[in-house]
Design a protein around this nucleic acid. Sequence first.
RNA 1: GGGAGAGUACCCAAGUUGGCCAAAGGGGGCAGACUGUAAAUCUGUUGUCAGUGACUUCAGUGGUUCAAAUCCGCUCUCUCCCA
Length: 376
Amino acid sequence: MFSILKTENNARRGRFTTIHGTVETPAFMNVATAGAIKGGLSSYDLADINCQVELCNTYHLHIRPGDKLVKELGGLHKFMGWSGPILTDSGGFQVFSLAKLRKISEDGVTFNSHVDGKKIFMGPKESMQIQSNLGSTIAMAFDECVSNPSDYDYAKQAADRTFRWLQICKDEMEKLNSKHDVVNKNQMLFGINQGSVYDDLRVEHMQQISKLDLDGYAIGGLAVGESKEEMYRIVSALNPVMPQNKIRYLMGVGTPGNIIECVSRGVDIFDCVMPSRNARHGSLFTKKGIININNAKYEKDNLPIDEKCSCPTCKRHSRAYIRHLFKAKEMLAMRLSVIHNLYFYNMLMIDIREALDKGTFSDFYRENVDILDLRI
RNA sequence: GGGAGAGUACCCAAGUUGGCCAAAGGGGGCAGACUGUAAAUCUGUUGUCAGUGACUUCAGUGGUUCAAAUCCGCUCUCUCCCA
């Protein structure tokens, strides 16, 4: 359950307790879509990067290896060899990102599998059943995420549908949790707010879903095409109407600067593919800004990626070596880079929590919010 | 010594009925993008200098032609075959 330890203006320092362990918030969830953090990290690497929670994907695991198989093998935690908290995304985002391969109806969405083209149907009931089979700590409601810009009518339609689906998800989850042979009887459910960039839709939708007394509330459908000013405005508009005593999750966000901005607007947890994906592409985060390790200027650079970083990569390796590994297409390049970037993100959250504990978050904000997103 | 074939940009390689060729396509190089992961991906650029144009290029050299990477002579280099 969630408790707030301290606040500073709208920012919250909290603690989220689950049957798989405690999450100190604000926190970043490390994305492991298909049951692994891309770039070759194993569960035994996670302590080294200060990972508290992993995020896996319902759609991907349903397609491969299949949620029934995962259940048969003892659930996702056992399968992955990770005993800490796992949040499973519902597959709702794939409705959006696989837009070319889908058809939406009131009951759910018909997809073509990106793996073999096979037709797959997923709706709120199916998503809950799959997530129950996976046995994650937290299940996400099945929502419809619209791209921005999106016209008002369509945004409203999608938000309304997301609310109807949420009610189905809640009923289904209660039913599943009461069954005797489920992997995790205590599986939690988070609802997702939609409404594009329209403040009134967002607020109204949040008020609707708040009444359902869920384990947590997420803001979805941001960082999907709108400006960051619009994103901040929506988060600010939602802050007063979100349940105060429930954990708040901003889905898919973002850059270090986005995270600092949204912590200051009352968000507790985040997830984003940016640190891992960008790491695989050579884009690395430092306290002075973002570097591209592939650049020729690092050819003879004997310094670590970030002089102030004490991650396993920075403790041992130089920029020149990591650049070489990228040029030589060695898979170690990605592994070392992903380790660094995720350590950077998890450390950013540790620094944010420490600042909140000490009551110095506004100083931390001022010193970091702009420079961390700079490309240098 | 005799015969056959080949030399194209950093590398490999297309182009050889002469013009639409500064020259396809790869690779490599340089740079950019990436926000609930169809992403070890994608995009741009890669003769020189200026920048809606000019100049120098297709082993070297000399020709033919209004026009040559493309046709002809010679030279050099490499590969294969026969001695």
